[in-house]
Write a protein that binds this DNA or RNA. Sequence first.
RNA 1: CGGGGCGUAGCGUAGUGGCUAGCGCGCCUGCUUUGGGAGCAGGAGACCGGGAGUUCGAAUCUCCCCGCCCCGACCA
Length: 577
Amino acid sequence: MLRMSNLLLRTLRDDPADAEVASHKLLVRAGFVRRIAAGIYSWLPLGYITYRNIENIVREEMDAAGFQEVHFPALLPKEPYEKTNRWNEYGPDLFRLKDRKENDFLLGPTHEEMFTLMIKGEFSSYKDLPISIYQIQTKYRDEPRPRSGIIRGREFVMKDSYSFDIDDAGLEESYQKHRASYIKTFDRLGLKYNIVSAMSGAMGGSKSEEFLAPCETGEDTYVLCNSCGFAANVEAMKTRIENKNIVVENFPSMEIFDSPNTPTIDSLVDLLNNKFGGNHQASDTLKNVLLVADGKPISVLVPGDREVDLKRLQANLSGIQDIRLFEDADFAKNPGLVKGYVGPQDAKKFGLTLYADPRVSVGTSWITGANQKDKHVRNVVHGRDFEVTEFVEAAEVKAGDLCPNCASPVIIDRAIEIGHIFQLGRKYAKALDLTVLDRDGKSQVVTMGSYGIGVSRAVAAIAEQTHDELGLCWPREVAPADIHLVATGKDSEIFSLAEKFAKELESLGWRVLFDDRADASPGVKFKDAELIGIPYILVVGKGVSEGKVEFRIRKSGEKKDLQITEAISEINTILNS
RNA sequence: CGGGGCGUAGCGUAGUGGCUAGCGCGCCUGCUUUGGGAGCAGGAGACCGGGAGUUCGAAUCUCCCCGCCCCGACCA
């Protein structure tokens, strides 16, 4: 039983000045956490109980799925991370330190290397596979900008697991097992979430999904279709296009025209409408975004009303490591390209590789730059006047774009990423030479899956999704107690009755937070109870003289009087239901 | 790393060159009070982020450093 009279807890009346988001403000105000440095927090008793409840749910579901828990050090030597080149690749986000002998160490940002080496050290046969192992561990990342309190810290707790399989079919099965286990876990945590297809990007994997907990203060944006439930990371959104069968030869031929002083798409559209009449729009023009991809000039074609989303482009451009926008020096090296007047029709001549957003489909006709200063050209037809090397999802995604599944307009929603599962493949196994012998005695590189849950982040995500204007409002399983018993008044009869209730509830197996403070006023106790957010509140106070106590539901605000004689059994029934 | 803002007691804050740095919450003592963050009285608690400088005099002005928050870049 937790007694408020001696609990290490001081609730705050005012929001802390450095907090912006609700979870941060409330977790500090309710005495769950305290900031130690930017992105680094201590957990106080109520916070730590809540955190551990979450950790235990995660652990129980992992164990239930048959995964085995291990534990690595947080402090690690450099060598394994050098083999996978992450000592360099991770850059300044890696916390690095030296021991007294000047050897390099790091604080683990993630543990792929260690998991891989653990399996390599113990197992060497296909008969040992499949296996999934996990740990719940403090991770360190020297984020450029920690923010939003507990949501993005430099020290945080993550459950990470890895599956090891001999082949792709096995990996798929392990992946699905994790997926199912995550669904159970997040359901128990009382989180609302969407499973969103994601790009596995440069990690070299194939399939990847994120578990996103929608909330306004989330820092991830994703695409959601309210009609069919389709959800995707912006990078993984697929453009839906009408499949027109257009005969390109039927278009009028290209026509160059003067277009001075049209540095922007808007000014070009104005000129078009003045010159040619009609109702020209930004979407009739073709934007040629010049980039340098692995040292070579490329052009990405998008409709004039869209920006290129570089992250999306990079995620979808296969086989390209590094990408950056054209700079003045690049224009100098490519004299044919006139800044502001680039068009795709001369790309071959310029040695420019063309990529196009799917909207720039074959058979579409565009107004674009004429590759001459102050001149544009119209009736530039894809398939007649230019060809592209590859279509690539490059344009920014907007609310109202059509769902690739059901063609309804999608919305752009915000969320906190609480879990991520993906098929890593053989990248780490190859780098660290994790092989097993197969049935034929041949050496095979193991294929891996990687699965994460932000455990400490989940505390904040739940707070974000469940709080109200009065305070925190924990789902039953994660709450620091089942019932918050408040004794008000100074009558010793009331306190001894409350004491008796507290003991009875505890002996029935319920976790009780007992506000037995003798000096706090009823108002203070009620406010604290609402701020702390335990799901049920039992008030033993002025009603006692009439033989009653008051039972409250934190979330709904519902109150009802119970007869003292029946209170415990009624509450027991409610808590059991 | 670019832009903006902040740093005064445990928390929230006032104080733009002049007396002993003020207030609210919280804390301690006493009395009163006990169903919505009680009242009165007394009290403890601050190297005003650090350093250097300007000045008769610096929380206040100048420079450097450190820390923190927000937007962006970046990122699981």
